[in-house]
Computed example of a mutant assay.
Amino acid sequence: MFSGHFVLVLLFSGLLSGVFSQSFIRIWSGNRNSENLDLISSDRKILRDDNLYCESWRFTVETNDAGLWEEVPKRCVKFVQDYMTGNGYGSDSELVSEDSSSFAATVNISGDGKDAWVFDIDETLLSNLPYYKLHGFGSELFNETTFDEWVDLAKAPALPESLRLYKELLRLGFKVFLLTGRGEAQRNVTEKNLLFSGYRNWERLILRGPSDVGKLAEVYKSEKRSDVEAEGYRIHGSSGDQWSDLLGFALAKRSFKLPNPMYYIA
Rank of each mutant, 00 (worst) to 15 (best):
residue 123 E to M: 05
residue 110 S to V: 14
residue 128 N to Y: 07
residue 145 T to C: 00
residue 113 G to Q: 12
residue 159 L to D: 00
residue 143 N to W: 07
residue 90 G to T: 05
residue 139 S to I: 04
residue 146 T to W: 02
residue 199 Y to R: 03
residue 146 T to A: 07
residue 186 Q to S: 14
residue 134 L to V: 03
residue 116 A to D: 03
residue 156 A to P: 08
residue 149 E to I: 09
residue 194 L to M: 13
residue 99 D to S: 12
residue 188 N to R: 10
residue 112 D to K: 14
residue 105 A to M: 13
residue 194 L to V: 12
residue 184 E to I: 15
residue 205 L to R: 01
residue 182 R to T: 08
residue 154 A to S: 14
residue 92 D to Q: 11
residue 175 K to Y: 09
residue 140 E to I: 04
residue 202 W to H: 02
residue 205 L to P: 03
residue 147 F to V: 01
residue 92 D to M: 09
residue 214 G to P: 02
residue 113 G to S: 13
residue 112 D to E: 14
residue 127 S to T: 07
residue 194 L to D: 08
residue 125 L to Q: 02
residue 137 F to G: 01
residue 131 Y to S: 08
residue 212 D to Y: 01
residue 183 G to L: 08
residue 145 T to F: 04
residue 89 Y to R: 04
residue 136 G to I: 07
residue 192 K to H: 10
residue 118 V to L: 09
residue 139 S to Y: 02
residue 210 P to F: 10
residue 171 R to C: 13
residue 210 P to D: 09
residue 120 D to Y: 00
residue 115 D to I: 07
residue 91 S to M: 15
residue 120 D to C: 02
residue 194 L to P: 06
residue 149 E to G: 13
residue 147 F to C: 01
residue 91 S to T: 15
residue 158 A to N: 11
residue 155 K to S: 11
residue 163 L to D: 00
residue 106 T to Q: 15
residue 132 Y to R: 06
residue 168 E to M: 10
residue 146 T to E: 14
residue 148 D to M: 12
residue 103 F to E: 03
residue 165 L to R: 02
residue 121 I to W: 01
residue 107 V to T: 14
residue 145 T to W: 02
residue 94 E to A: 13
residue 145 T to A: 07
residue 146 T to H: 04
residue 141 L to C: 07
residue 145 T to S: 09
residue 109 I to R: 03
residue 124 T to S: 15
residue 202 W to L: 01
residue 136 G to L: 05
residue 196 F to Y: 15
residue 102 S to F: 10
residue 103 F to T: 02
residue 196 F to C: 06
residue 176 V to T: 13
residue 129 L to P: 10
residue 210 P to E: 10
residue 191 E to D: 12
residue 195 L to G: 07
residue 115 D to R: 04
residue 131 Y to F: 15
residue 178 L to A: 06
residue 198 G to I: 03
residue 123 E to K: 04
residue 171 R to E: 15
residue 187 R to E: 03
residue 106 T to E: 15
residue 213 V to C: 04
residue 214 G to E: 06
residue 202 W to T: 01
residue 161 E to L: 01
residue 196 F to L: 10
